[in-house]
Simulated scan of single mutants.
Amino acid sequence: MTSGTREHPEGAVRTLLTGTDEAVDATVTHEALLLACAGALDDSDRLVRHWVAATGRSADRLAATAVTARAWAMLLAARDPQPDWAEELTPLDLDAEQQAHEKVLAERDPLPPRGRRQRAAAADAEHAAATGDTEAATEALQRWAEIAREIPKPDAATLAACRHVAPLLVSGVLAVEPDWAWNYTAALVAALDQRYRVDRPRGSWRDLVDAVMRLRGEPGATPPPASPAAIDRAEQTLGLPLSDEFRAFLLTCDGLRADVVFPRLLGVADLTPGAEPGTVTISDPPSLTLWPSGEVTEDDELFGRTVHTGFRAVLEEHLRLLEASEARISDLGEPGER
């Protein structure tokens, strides 16, 4: 489902940032179900847990309609063990829900053409899976995924609510690339952080760097600091001043190795002028640029350009993402293993 959903996070992120609380809850429901359908169960759980932590709302708000409640019930029945957040959901009678969903699968007239095709594919997959024809069910699911690439908001809930299809989804029959699912979820998590976060005490630069390295699982790997003289020489070589925040970072540690979703931060010996006048490239790959104002821009192929108020904001954002995904990061191991 990756190619057709590359533009989709933008609309979801916009809703998470500016929509009503009800719209936020509905968007998280849809995105978490879509990730689960795509076999990205860890990322689906990560999004739900982060939404719960950020908003303080109960997970039962993710089952606000009969179909979404049914979707979670069928997916969770196929999972062992079930995630901790699922304890807040009301248990359902799966036999009764299966019968009710047959009627939903048959309701296609009010839908637009692609919606009808997608629901028909879901019905075909469910009926094939119910008879044990896994090959035919998989073919129908691939048709569903092809249609999902064409529309901005695939009907993941109706698919996941199919009792016999749910185990196939959990097993990864529609699995997407792990890196894509991770980055997709990171964009949603960052939007929730921006809307709902409560600013933490700022602390010292050493506290911030130590927290980042601890959550990366390598607390003893912090590089030594750069000397003031070395920073002065770098500024002379560049012909440009460095911001007070970036100087403070270099005086804490002279650069930082890359992480799974974070570039290598350059030390004084590797800093180079940026593409724009007066700017300095501070990362490898060159996605982070320090501007004369002290702002830092972050360029991403998928999500475009983000403007951070300063270098500290960049590192704090990295820390927030690490906090939101601590369990996932520990599963991934060293950055080079993905």
Results as ranks from 00 to 15, higher is better:
3 S>C: 02
6 R>C: 00
6 R>Q: 03
10 E>S: 11
15 T>V: 09
18 T>D: 12
21 D>N: 00
23 A>Q: 11
23 A>K: 07
24 V>F: 06
24 V>K: 01
29 T>M: 04
37 C>T: 15
37 C>K: 00
38 A>L: 15
38 A>M: 14
43 D>E: 14
45 D>I: 03
45 D>G: 02
46 R>I: 09
50 H>N: 07
52 V>S: 02
59 A>C: 06
60 D>C: 05
64 A>W: 02
67 V>E: 03
73 A>G: 00
74 M>F: 04
79 R>F: 05
81 P>Q: 05
81 P>N: 05
84 D>E: 10
85 W>M: 07
87 E>H: 10
88 E>M: 05
88 E>F: 10
93 D>M: 07
98 Q>V: 06
101 H>C: 09
103 K>E: 13
108 R>C: 12
118 Q>R: 08
120 A>G: 12
124 D>Y: 09
131 T>A: 07
131 T>I: 13
132 G>N: 05
133 D>Y: 13
136 A>F: 14
137 A>F: 14
138 T>S: 14
149 R>V: 10
149 R>D: 15
152 P>R: 06
156 A>F: 01
158 T>E: 01
159 L>D: 00
159 L>N: 01
160 A>R: 03
163 R>Q: 04
165 V>C: 04
165 V>R: 00
168 L>V: 02
170 V>H: 01
173 V>H: 02
174 L>W: 04
180 W>N: 01
182 W>Q: 03
183 N>Y: 11
183 N>G: 10
192 L>K: 00
192 L>F: 03
193 D>G: 08
195 R>S: 10
202 R>H: 11
203 G>P: 15
212 V>Y: 09
216 R>G: 03
220 G>C: 07
221 A>D: 13
241 P>G: 13
241 P>W: 15
242 L>S: 11
243 S>N: 05
244 D>K: 09
245 E>K: 10
246 F>S: 08
251 L>S: 09
251 L>I: 14
253 C>W: 03
254 D>A: 11
254 D>V: 08
255 G>I: 15
256 L>E: 14
257 R>K: 09
260 V>G: 08
260 V>T: 13
265 L>M: 15
265 L>K: 04
266 L>Q: 03
271 L>V: 15
273 P>I: 10
273 P>Q: 00
277 P>T: 07
277 P>S: 06
278 G>F: 12
279 T>K: 00
285 P>T: 05
286 P>A: 08
287 S>L: 12
294 G>K: 03
298 E>W: 15
300 D>P: 08
302 L>K: 00
304 G>V: 12
304 G>I: 09
309 T>R: 12
310 G>V: 12
311 F>H: 12
312 R>Q: 06
312 R>D: 00
313 A>N: 06
314 V>N: 05
318 H>L: 13
326 E>K: 08
334 E>N: 13
335 P>D: 07
336 G>Y: 15
337 E>C: 15
338 R>I: 13
